[in-house]
């Protein structure tokens, strides 16, 4: 009887050792994955900041004013003045929605997040 118990304990120990070894490996893999994801998030954040800065730079009032002047022939943008205010009921809204059928629902979404992040 004693030897059966001893054999059982030894088997249990071996089993636990194998299980804990595999758990350690799994956790290491998960940690690596998290580290990679964190680095990815950091890269995306940094890229987002860069794009925001770029956006702000491209949309600086000085540049927009210069562009409006340059493209005046096509866009006819002028400085906002008091003549541009009218009561809402005087705004001629085109009834665009009545003529066109509603758009079909999107069934094949495309993941575009982080596309081109490597560039």
């Amino acid at each position: 009887m004693k030897s059966v118990i001893v054999a059982f304990v030894i088997l249990c120990t071996v089993g636990l050792a194998v299980w804990s070894y595999s758990e350690i490996n799994t956790s290491k893999e998960t940690l690596d994955e998290i580290a990679e994801l964190n680095a990815d998030i950091a890269r995306s954040k940094s890229r987002l900041r860069k794009l925001n800065a770029e956006w702000a730079y491209q949309n600086r009032p000085e540049r927009l004013a210069a562009l409006a002047l340059e493209k005046f022939e096509h866009l006819e943008l002028t400085v906002l003045s008091r003549d541009h205010f009218v009561p809402l009921d005087q705004v001629p809204f085109a009834n665009v929605y009545a003529a066109e059928p509603p758009l079909a629902p999107i069934t094949t979404p495309v993941e575009i997040m982080n596309r081109g992040a490597a560039q």
């Binding site: 998290i34 964190n38 900041r49 860069k50 800065a53 956006w55 949309n59």
Partner: peptide
């Protein structure tokens, strides 16, 4: 982990347009 990478905060105008930001 990622918040450590956050650096000097941006400065925005009242409508959220960027007045000061960081550049790598």
């Amino acid at each position: 982990g990622t918040s450590i990478l956050a650096n000097r905060s941006d400065i925005l105008d009242r409508n959220g347009r960027v007045l000061a930001t960081n550049m790598e």
